[in-house]
Simulated scan of single mutants.
Amino acid sequence: MNSPVFSSLLPVVLLIAAGYLAGRRQWVGAHAIKDLSNLIFLLLAPALLFRSMSKVHFEQLSFTPVAAYFIGAGIIFVGMLAWLGLNRRAAVLAIASTFSNTVIIGVALVDLAYGPPGLVVLLTLVSLHSLILITSATVLIELMVAREHAASNSAPSQHMLRTVGRALRNSILHPVPLPIIAGLLYAQTGWGLPAVIDKPLLLLGQAFSPVALVLVGITLALTPVGTHLRGAFAMAVVKNVVHPLLVVGTGWLLGVRGLPLTVMVVAAAMPIGANAFLFSQRYKVAEELVTASVVVSTVLALLTLSAAMALAGRF
Rank of each mutant, 00 (worst) to 15 (best):
I180E: 06
S136L: 15
A146H: 00
N87D: 10
R88T: 07
W83H: 07
V126H: 11
R147P: 04
T124E: 11
R89F: 00
H149A: 05
I180N: 06
V176M: 09
L125A: 07
S100W: 15
L122G: 07
T163V: 00
G74I: 07
R147G: 05
R166A: 00
A151G: 15
L109M: 02
D111K: 03
A96Y: 07
I75P: 02
P175C: 02
M160E: 02
T135S: 14
S171Q: 08
T163W: 00
L184W: 03
I132Y: 15
E148D: 10
N87E: 08
I134F: 14
T163D: 01
P116T: 01
E142F: 01
A94M: 08
A137M: 05
N153W: 13
T124R: 06
V176G: 01
H159V: 03
A113Y: 10
M144F: 08
I181A: 09
L133V: 13
V145T: 01
P156R: 06
S97A: 14
G165D: 06
A82M: 15
S157A: 07
I134L: 14
A90V: 03
V145C: 00
R147N: 11
L86A: 13
E142L: 00
S171D: 12
P116M: 07
V176W: 08
G115N: 13
P116G: 08
I104T: 11
L173I: 06
S157T: 05
S100V: 13
E148I: 04
T102R: 09
I141V: 06
R169S: 04
L143E: 04
L123E: 10
H129D: 10
G115V: 11
H129K: 10
I180Q: 04
A91Y: 11
I172D: 10
S136I: 09
A167K: 01
A108P: 06
S152V: 04
V121E: 06
N170T: 00
L131Q: 13
T98G: 14
L161N: 08
